[in-house]
Amino acid sequence: MPYDESDVLVYDSRRAPEAPDKHLRATSEAAWVRRSLIGIAVAFMLLVLVLPLALVFTEAFKKGFGVFLESLADRHALAAIRLTLLVAAIAVPLNLVFGVAAAWAIAKFEFKGKAFLTTLIDLPFSVSPVVSGLVYVLLFGAQGLLGPWLQANNIEIIFAVPGIVLATVFVTFPFVARELIPLMQAQGSGDEEAALSLGASGWQAFWRVTLPNIKWGLLYGVLLCNARAMGEFGAVAVVSGHIRGKTTTMPLHIEILYNEYNFAAAFAVASLLAMLALVTLVIKAVLEFRFGEELAATRRH
């Protein structure tokens, strides 16, 4: 929808501007309405969002920094941290490759059944994490479909690390794809076609043209994928068997500690994950602030 440039210096008539004289805008609410709404919104957010977060850190350090460190240095805690990192280190790259491949196929080509593919990709978001774990138990568990075969060959999936990795991969694979697909769709194939016409091979076009274009979306997708991979609880709980020291990830370890009423330790480990969440949010905010406009501009036609 073209609009006249005549007053582009004065205001952009298509977006609600930050009115310099707030109360003089012809189309804004009375001051008391504004203040009440802000008050309600802020109060709600503080209550629902900030308070739990604050509690995590308060409880973690309640008994002092010494206890905090002890909880983390505990041998089971360390094992849990190691396992969590290991699982993330496997799941995230796998999902990264998948996300890029799926986004490439979906964004650059027209094919039948595309809608089906994208629905599949969205599936983990609608499925309970417990169900996500359950399907693997039903497949690889002792009474599962492949159970006998696995036992015969001495392969352990359920109640072992591979199972945890699988379940985590299931739950987190959409993140990278979901970031990249709209982004690449909005960017179109023009750049790649130009590269090809200049003699680049498919790979070169991807590395030199596509990748730089999508790097921020990719980074953000990876961040989310990682945060979720390290924090996944329900699916892993089903698949892991809760064997302390061997198949407990950090979230499971937190559960065990909490159920033992060992609150300080539980919140200590929890605070690590909470800090990871905060870092993710901060990076997201920074990315959005600096590159959101760019990305949004490519999304609008």
Partner: peptide
């Protein structure tokens, strides 16, 4: 809530 692990949210 998107970024925070569910177990952490749960105990908090």
């Amino acid at each position: 809530p998107f970024a925070l692990p569910t177990a952490v949210a749960g105990i908090a």
